[in-house]
């Protein structure tokens, strides 16, 4: 795998406590628009996603959770602050290098439309490797396919699969190039609870048995409960972190959080 150049003096991937971060943002600010219509989607967020951990990002609509994910994953650029994938600072990369970084070191699972309709299941899974012109490690692919449980459907087209199956293929695709980190954006948003459960189980297994790192944006407390840690955003700021979450605790926290923001807004107005 190509090693991307590390900007000189970058030490951000390890903080004093010695934790290794697969992805990290420091003082991240993202501003959309200007003047009266200016929106600060991220307002000075610093957060790291430790290697081998399943992190969920939560927060109400407009809290900046998707923006955080996009910036951390190199799909979008920060207005100020810096974002890292492992020890690579993203702002130093041009479009081509960013693209290469995404394809080699980052995996993606989106809410919908994760698969190319013209490619088969097998081709979709190996797409990032094919784009890189690399031969997939067959053992690795086979084990992936075993894990997602779609061995019998490798030659099917996405349109012949159910929504849950499609998302499982997307997870396999995201893991195919053994990325440093997999970003999942509401991966269960379009699924019924049973299919959602399967996809979340899959992401959990990727972390626990395959030693991958997963960052997931979700608004569903049940989904968030699959994560090792939940971080909460509101109005573009990091407002809370909750290790070892359960659905109830997350829900309670969100409710309290809603009340407090309402109170804050009431005070402000």
């Amino acid at each position: 795998m190509t090693t991307l150049p590390t900007p000189a003096g970058s030490t951000a991937h390890t903080v004093p406590d010695g934790t290794n971060y697969a992805a990290q943002v420091v003082d991240a600010v993202k501003v959309y628009g200007a003047g009266a219509t200016e929106v600060r989607a991220l307002d000075g967020v610093s957060v790291g996603f430790p290697v081998g951990q399943f992190t969920a990002i939560m927060g109400p609509s407009g809290s900046g959770k998707s923006t955080l994910m996009h910036c951390a994953a190199g799909l979008d650029t920060l207005t100020s602050g810096s974002a890292f994938i492992a020890d690579t600072e993203l702002s130093a990369l041009d479009d081509r290098r960013l693209t290469l970084l995404r394809r080699e070191r980052v995996g993606f699972v989106f809410q919908a439309f994760n698969l190319l309709p013209t490619l088969t299941v097998a081709e979709n899974i190996s797409l990032p490797l094919d784009l890189a012109g690399q031969r997939a490690d067959p053992d690795w692919l086979e084990s992936l396919i075993d894990v997602v449980g779609l061995g019998g459907r490798l030659r099917h087209r996405p349109s012949e699969l159910s929504g849950g199956q499609q998302q499982r293929v997307a997870v396999a695709r995201a893991l195919a190039s053994r990325p440093d980190v997999v970003f999942a954006d509401e991966p269960t948003g379009n699924l019924d609870s049973r299919s959602g459960e399967e996809v979340l189980g899959l992401l959990g297994r990727a972390v626990r048995t395959m030693a991958r790192t997963v960052v997931m944006v979700t608004h569903d407390p049940v989904a968030a409960a699959h994560a090792d840690e939940v971080i909460m955003l509101a109005d573009g700021r990091l407002v809370d972190r909750m290790p070892n979450p359960t659905a109830e605790r997350v829900l309670d926290r969100l409710k309290a959080f809603d009340r407090s923001t309402e109170a804050a807004r009431a005070v402000a107005s």
Partner: peptide, 13 residues
């Protein structure tokens, strides 16, 4: 959308 997906998973320009 497809093109966006391709770009996201690593297709260069």
């Amino acid at each position: 959308r497809e093109l966006g997906l391709l770009r996201a998973v690593g297709q260069t320009q």
